[in-house]
Design a protein around this nucleic acid. Structure first.
Lengths: 122, 122
DNA sequence: GCATTTCGTTTACGTCCGTAATCGATGACA
DNA sequence: TGTCATCGATTACGGACGTAAACGAAATGC
């Protein structure tokens, strides 16, 4: 079952640091997202049902931590997009941004460094 | 208003060739997707309401063509993902696939060619 | 001990989405 | 000219999502 956009914001908090109490997650998200605590509670419950997080009792409250790894989530999302739009390959995506002139000098330098490194491994 | 996954499959057909009659779009998608014609009709109507396509009368039927450009759609989707997951930059995405060893030799060669070309433009 | 606060759980509700059947108008055919 | 086939338009319906209030149990303050 997929993690929704709103849910992924909660995951982000937990990926950054965990375990956390609901209170902490509310503190980290509610203001920025304009959410009520109740909303965060709902999202936590849905994530529990999806087995994306786990809760362990800590006295009268629970502490939440991710079960789903950030890398796995990022990978699934990225691969989904690549498959749908770029024939599953990375280069066409880079080419797309290049054609749209959305690559800064810094982007290009980073890419060049990456590629050189990869070539070294070869 | 966002184009949903199912809708984007209809858009794909129209991006490949347009204008097309509903019948053609059904022919191009229904079998592969396991859709009834009714489903395709619904999707066409929703795309019309979203102004992603336009219909012009052709005798007793309509011919549909895209208003939304494929490049714009691809860009919005890609940028959304990059922004959400990779700090809006392309290199970290490439690095991610590299770390997961999901880059084939061919991918790397394509990327190297791309980068060299970009460097030439510099 | 009893009221109040504090958690998590349950329920709610409008919208979008996937999927499709049905309806209504119009053109074709007999 | 009346009936049948075609189209697009309307309506339907369950599930997910965003957003949140209400409820119930447990702890805490007095």
């Amino acid at each position: 079952m997929p993690i929704s956009d709103a849910e992924s914001i909660v995951m982000d908090v937990l990926w950054r640091s965990s375990p956390l109490a609901a209170e902490d997650i509310v503190a980290a998200t509610a203001a920025g997202q304009g959410w009520q605590e109740a909303t965060v509670k709902t999202l936590l419950n849905r994530l529990l049902r999806k087995k994306a997080i786990a809760a362990e009792r800590d006295g009268r409250r629970y502490l939440y931590r991710p079960l789903l790894k950030r890398g796995d989530y990022v990978h699934a999302a990225s691969k989904g997009l690549l498959d749908r739009l770029f024939d599953g390959r990375v280069a066409p995506l880079v080419a797309h941004f290049s054609e749209r002139r959305k690559l800064t000098k810094k982007d290009i330098a980073e890419l060049r460094a990456l590629i050189e490194e990869l070539d070294d491994d070869r």
